[in-house]
Design a protein around this nucleic acid. Structure first.
Lengths: 350, 350
DNA sequence: GGTTGGCACTCACAGGGCGTGAGTGCCAGG
DNA sequence: CCTGGCACTCACGCCCTGTGAGTGCCAACC
């Protein structure tokens, strides 16, 4: 599939795709000759284009419109033809700078990653929060809100926090709550849901309120594990709408719907989490029909064996793949390093 | 401004506006006569329409197109003409049911409120988290993440939680951190930022790490007070796009931009927080130009003197005001009651 | 055999002209 | 004050046509 194409055809295909990506206008034989000073005539190029079309890399809306890449064309481009350029150093520095500005909150990192990615790739972005592969208990706190109302704050190993109000039977003063919290923290430190579930069953006859708290904690943690690929944040609607494919309202509604529910990207997450490199899924390569005109570039970030999330870009198949891929890769690295600091106190290395 | 209109004119204006709201098509004199079996001829209606136009309540795109309400027309309608119907009992029950399903998390309430509001009013919705008028310290927790990294979890009186990592000079074992946290909790229970700031200045020579923690807490709380009207969540883009005004791409981009930044609604928040009823701002009544074709219906929710947030609806000036207003009012009540339970342990009454 | 100029052919797109119909404005008469 | 009648006005949709870009193919050339 690589040697099949002569050097000239590869060049022509590459030029067509590059031109189309940044102009969004079907590419004619003449334009290629003129713009790139090719040593042959437009008629020759036409023959080559026809051949590339025969091979399935290009199409034609109708006779007498320029050539347009097919999904297979983009695929070939991504795999064999494109220039693998990284972001410029200036861009890298600016991005790092922005992350350092908000070094505090995890939520803000996620939001920032989405915004930066969208702006850099001029498309919509998707980001999920970093999650532990398995929920591990870190800490809990019981805070008296009102006589019979208690706020339970649960901190998991991956830094996610859940808050929940609990109604209790009788009045619970704060110091009693603190003592209970301390006891539970001690007992459950760094354990998984299963272990907590076991430990609860062992001590059947304990305090009813304590049992209730345990129950809430277990349910929270279970809910968490189920939610692994919930919580897909997306951003950059405005950026993606600036792409010329969204000149008709129908397309806009389509992308809004795709982004809103995180559908269309959800199915790709397991694969992205499992693999190491940047994943690219082009148009019809998605299963469903509603994604046939969109491509997704995404990758995993995080710390091996501990926590992981995904970051990615979504846009029309006519996407600036080289740039999207570099941006996604870079942001993933930045996020991974930030998490390294967060979890392990490692210093930055990017 | 009320007695100025004859009963018949009031009726005609009301009918025109109602018809236009649900049809989005300019209203003709004939239609009114036919559809509502008025006892007069269309010519008479035409005269009345001309008079209403003269008064500034209606317009004309050009001769020979039906009448369309002006901003002043909508204003008069909202104030004097519209039927103040509440949501049906079935709708109320369904909404309440949904809130009970997710009775746990505040974040989810907000999200749900946005979704429900958007669906009910068929427009975009905006919701802010409930915030205390003044940040009051409730609780903090220090959790050892790594030898020299500490996770600070700060709980404020209004239930908002902030997490932040702190790097410390030396190794801090968990029990030392717990003791420090207990000490600070005791000292700062239920105080405002100012008091904390004062208390820090008093004990100049204390431990450097303790001072650092105090500093982070103070900055978090200050940031919070500044952010009072930050964090505007919006939802229902899909719903609002189903309105016929968004048949052209330019309009879509406009609303997307308005929603994205929470701009256009930001300026209205102070007023909504200060007043008790439902606020309606119609088209040109907004200051800026970009909101000239949009209306906002919003209100405060929360607990008097303690916490408050806002919920609202935003859409084209041709908005189903009665329904939007009922929906906003109802959701605000539900949210207020939920908060009542959360903060005061009050039982529901809606 | 690859390359080229030439030429016919195709098709999207923009602009102009026109008919149609909805709806008003006005007037004169009841 | 109400009404029927009538002229007038536009937006809208339609068709039509000219235009230009671009291909496809062929015969000739190296």
């Amino acid at each position: 599939m690589n040697g099949e194409l002569s050097e000239r055809r590869r060049l022509i295909l590459k030029l067509v795709i590059q031109e189309y990506i940044d102009g969004s206008v079907p590419i004619s034989s003449e334009l290629l000759v003129r713009k790139y000073g090719l040593a042959v005539s437009s008629a020759t190029i036409r023959n080559e284009l026809a051949a590339l079309e025969e091979l399935g890399y290009l199409t034609h809306l109708h006779t007498s419109a320029g050539r347009v890449p097919t999904d297979a064309g983009y695929r070939f481009f991504v795999e064999n033809l494109m220039d693998r350029t990284a972001l410029t150093l200036t861009e890298q520095r600016m991005i790092r700078h922005q992350f350092h500005q908000v070094r505090t909150e995890l939520d803000q990192w996620i939001q920032l990653a989405g915004a930066v990615l969208a702006r850099t790739a001029q498309n919509a972005s998707v980001v999920t929060a970093p999650r532990a592969y398995q929920a591990r208990f870190k800490h809990l706190e019981l805070i008296s809100i009102h006589e019979t109302t208690v706020l339970l704050v649960l901190v998991l190993f991956d830094g996610t926090i859940r808050q929940q109000t609990i109604a209790c039977d009788g009045v619970r003063p704060q110091d009693e709550l603190s003592r209970l919290a301390a006891r539970l923290n001690d007992r459950w430190a760094d354990t998984t849901v299963e272990r907590i579930r076991d430990s609860v069953q062992e001590r059947e006859g304990s305090d009813a309120f304590e049992a209730h708290v345990a129950d809430v904690v277990i349910r929270s943690m279970e809910w968490f594990e189920d939610q692994l690929n919930g919580g897909i944040h997306s951003d950059g609607l405005m950026e993606v709408l600036s792409q010329p494919e969204f000149a008709k309202v129908a397309r806009i509604r389509q992308i809004v719907e795709i982004l809103q529910r995180g559908r269309g990207i959800g199915p790709l997450i397991p694969r992205a989490l499992a693999s190491d490199g940047v994943q690219v899924v082009i148009g019809g390569e998605h299963g469903h029909d509603d994604m046939r005109e969109y491509s997704v570039v995404l990758t995993r970030y995080g710390i091996d064996g501990e926590v992981a999330g995904i970051v990615g870009v979504i846009g029309p198949t006519r996407m600036a793949y080289p740039r999207a891929i570099s941006a996604v890769r870079y942001i993933a690295n930045v996020m991974s390093d930030l998490l390294g600091v967060f979890y392990n106190g490692e210093s930055t290395r990017y």
